[in-house]
Write a protein that binds this DNA or RNA. Structure first.
Lengths: 227, 227
DNA sequence: AAATCTAGTTAACAATAAATTAATATTATA
DNA sequence: TATAATATTAATTTATTGTTAACTAGATTT
């Protein structure tokens, strides 16, 4: 079982806030990524796939509400905690934030220690649900074998069974070259006999469906995942 | 064991607060019980077995911290949400409350609407994790295993036993692909032998009865709930 | 008890998607 | 450049699932 650190994305346009919150979250053992506005928050979220996103309401480009709404409409972020921060201390925003799918709503000025406490409290509560060992993630590419789907930059790509299994095999060990024989025995099984071009065709379909260069041909040897 | 309307216990020594919070929680569909001090809160908690307990910090007999600590040391209240209320707006109490196992910490004066919002947000997040919940809700689809019926958009759809159990199995873990074998052993049992098309026919009946696309076929693998 | 339901299953066939092949083009490298 | 390996494309085959209707065994009603 992999024990990756819990990942948190902070989006705020005030560098001071980002810095102090990052510092405290890091100290508490979280892996932190940052964004300075709403658009960057969405971009980073897709790539970083955080377990929790802290959103300032008042941000340039897209405000916290808009980002929250977007995240909640995207299946990739189903299980992602969203914490909203704001200097506005009004009831309506508070309720709106929670109704848009926020998990916590905190008024500024906020003590970093309290923020960290609140976030741990949230994680403590959802802990049992967060134990995904069957999911690979390489940058903005998520390969989820429990759901049999791949998400690239927030977009779901449905691969057929063999395609998926082939991609999963390669991506589980990025950089390692798999011989054609290895691929055949792992994905097709030892007793199955298929023609020369079968692997190539499947590789091609993966390349076309994902639209990125993530599988490299090592001529005369085999293929490797390289992204 | 949880029963259907979500139960909330409020403990506060100020009758006015109790009254106004009860009113709003009731209106939001929760079943409410009250206690006027810490000792009564513990007693009532044992009897009433609430899903959520709202505790004022400053109470006679035993204060909110003490009650929280007691509840958290008792397995009966493992999954019970604890919300702490206080007029003291100091960082140390806030952190202490969360560290003692509180799920939320709210400063008075509190708007009842905000309180209700925060509590629904907590439940929304917790629901999927609680395996003992008998009623699933995914968007406008409610799957009630006590009554063996599903409600979609307010309209009741009666599924037969096998249909219901199949839907329930899938919907309990949305997105997860269930292999045909898993479905067979979970719904039909390990020793039952049925033909190839039995699952398909049941899936079809669910699809027809509900009239929505909520079960996705993953060809060569199985089925998943996806709505 | 006979008739009528109902859920569950099966079987035959249709429809669909996936996997494979085959033919040809392209590429890398000895 | 020659050639072996891989890429590409479309056609074909195969596997899997969808659909329908009929059948069976219990339950329920008359």
């Amino acid at each position: 079982m992999e024990t990756n650190p819990i990942k948190i994305l902070i989006a705020d346009d005030e560098p001071d806030i980002i810095e102090i919150i990052s510092f405290h979250l890091n100290k508490a053992g979280y892996e932190v990524e940052t964004a300075k506005d709403g658009s960057e928050a969405i971009e980073k979220a897709k790539q970083f796939n955080p377990d929790c996103i802290i959103l300032d309401i008042m941000m340039p480009k897209r405000n916290g509400f808009e980002v929250c709404e977007f995240l909640r409409s995207n299946k990739q972020f189903d299980k992602t905690l969203i914490v909203l921060l704001t200097a506005l201390n009004d009831e309506a925003s508070h309720i709106k934030g929670l109704e848009l799918g926020g998990d916590d709503f905190i008024n500024k000025p906020i003590s970093p220690k309290v923020l960290v406490s609140r976030i741990s409290a949230l994680f403590r509560r959802i802990q049992p649900a967060t134990s995904e060992t069957k999911t690979l993630q390489i940058k903005d590419l998520i390969i989820d074998s429990e759901q049999y789907k791949t998400i690239l930059n927030g977009v779901v790509h449905v691969l057929a069974k063999k395609e998926f299994e082939l991609l999963y095999l390669l991506a589980a060990q990025p950089g390692r070259v798999f011989l054609r024989n290895e691929i055949l025995s792992q994905v097709w099984g030892n007793d199955v006999i298929v023609g020369d071009r079968t692997i190539d065709v499947h590789i091609r379909k993966i390349r076309v469906k994902l639209g990125i260069e993530c599988i490299t041909t090592v001529k005369g040897v085999g293929y490797k995942f390289d992204y």
